[in-house]
Each structure stands twice: as structure tokens, then as C-alpha cells.
Simulated scan of single mutants.
Amino acid sequence: MTNPADLPYRPCAGVMLLNREGQVFVGQRLDSTLEAWQMPQGGIDPGEDARTAALRELGEETGIAPDLVELIAEAPDELFYDLPDELVGKVWKGKWRGQRQRWFLFRFHGADGDVRIDTPHPEFRAWRWLEPSALPDVIVPFKRKLYQDVLAAFAAHLPG
């Protein structure tokens, strides 16, 4: 068995999407039985820059077109999380120990009707708007510190 510490981190991009009321988009993953919600995020393709990946993932997961969002901020540093030992080797074909992510804060200028999680390759079974401070309470436990770090990175731009 591979030692997780010997594996690299998967390069990813994440999106914190704020609506007009300052609430954050979260989706409930299709592939999880846990009552867990997360923000849109996914892998950065070879040769793709992180912001392009973030917008692509946002579209793939929420159906939201890039012209409906405005960039507010980018987290100054990459943020990391490790998979729990029991998931290493089971997800991402066992190639990664966790993710290193570039996070972007976008303002959503569309309407709820512009959100379409019934995409060609759906990732979410439900979605909602949530107060930013509640994010660490709804994510899977192994990503809680990551979400606290995302909130800290964007604190100056969040309500309250």
C-alpha cells in the first residue's frame, strides 16, 4: 500500500460565489450519502490557469455562465486539504493525497433561475444559498479547516 505522504496534491480551483444578499452557493454532492454541502471546485487541467479552471468548474457544476459573475478577489495562497486515510487510494484512482487549491471569490449577478445543476455531468443533487459563517458546519469534516481558511482569505469581502 502506498504511503499517503508520498503522494502529491491534486491541483484544483475553488469558487466562493456570493449572491446579492451576501450568501454563498453550496451544492450537495451526488456521490455522497453524507448530509454535506460544498462550494464548486475541481481539477485544473494541464495548461489551464486556475481562474479559467474555476470558471469552467462553476459552469460544469452549476450551469452558471461566466458573464453572470464578477471576480471580487483571489486567495493570496494555495490552500490544502488531505483526504482521510480510508479514502486515499479510493478516489482519483489513488494518485493524490488531497488537493492544493486556488480559491476565487465571485459575485453572482444572475437570478436563481440561472442556476442549473442538471448539467451534462451533474455533481450536485441539491443546492442552496447559505450564510458564509455556516460553511465550516456543512462541509465534510476533513475539509472543515480548508473552509475556515477560505473564509479567512476572503473575510475583508464578506458581510458582517
Results as ranks from 00 to 15, higher is better:
Phe154Arg: 03
Arg51His: 15
Trp37Met: 14
Ile44Glu: 08
Tyr147Gln: 14
Gly43Gln: 15
Gly42Lys: 07
Gly110Lys: 06
Phe108Met: 02
Ala13Ile: 02
Trp37Gln: 10
Ile44Trp: 11
Lys145Val: 15
Trp103Asn: 10
Leu58Tyr: 04
Leu34Glu: 15
Arg20Cys: 14
Asp49Ser: 09
Asp112Ile: 12
Leu151Ile: 11
Ile139Gln: 14
Arg20Gly: 15
Ile44Pro: 08
Arg10Pro: 04
Pro122Arg: 01
Val69His: 03
Gln99Gly: 15
Gly47Ser: 06
Asn3Tyr: 08
Asp77Cys: 06
Ile72Arg: 13
Glu61Asp: 12
Asn19Glu: 12
Pro84Thr: 10
Ile117Gly: 05
Leu55Arg: 05
Cys12Gly: 12
Glu70Cys: 01
Pro76Leu: 07
Gly47Pro: 04
Pro159Gly: 01
Ala75Met: 06
Pro141Gly: 08
Gln23Ala: 12
Asn19Val: 13
Met16Asp: 02
Lys93Tyr: 10
Cys12Thr: 15
Gly94Leu: 07
Glu48Lys: 06
Met39Phe: 08
Ala152Ser: 14
Asp114Phe: 02
Trp127Asn: 00
Val138Ala: 09
Leu18His: 09
Trp96Asn: 00
Ala153Trp: 07
Glu70Asp: 03
Ala73Phe: 10
Ala36Met: 01
Cys12His: 06
Trp127Val: 01
Arg10Glu: 06
Gly113Asp: 06
Leu158His: 11
Pro4Arg: 08
Thr2Asn: 05
Leu68Trp: 05
Val69Pro: 10
Leu17Ser: 03
Lys143Asn: 14
Glu123Cys: 13
Leu130Met: 14
Phe106Cys: 03
Asp118Val: 11
Ala13His: 04
Thr33His: 13
Gln148His: 09
Ala50Ser: 13
Phe80Ser: 11
Met39Cys: 14
Glu21Lys: 13
Leu146Phe: 12
Val150Glu: 01
Arg29Tyr: 10
Pro120Ser: 03
Ala155Tyr: 08
Ala5His: 00
Lys95Pro: 01
Gly42Leu: 03
Ala155Thr: 10
Glu21Leu: 14
Gly42Glu: 00
Glu74Phe: 00
Glu70Thr: 07
Cys12Glu: 14
Pro76Asp: 09
Leu105Ala: 12
Ala36Tyr: 09
Asp49Trp: 00
Arg29Trp: 14
Gly14His: 05
Phe142Asp: 11
Gln148Met: 09
Leu7Ile: 01
Trp92Thr: 14
Gly59Met: 07
Asp112Glu: 15
Gly14Met: 10
Thr62Ile: 11
Asp82Phe: 04
Ala153Ser: 14
Met39Arg: 05
Ala5Leu: 00
Asp118Ser: 13
Phe142Tyr: 11
Arg125Gly: 09
Ala155Met: 10
Phe142Ile: 02
Leu7Val: 11
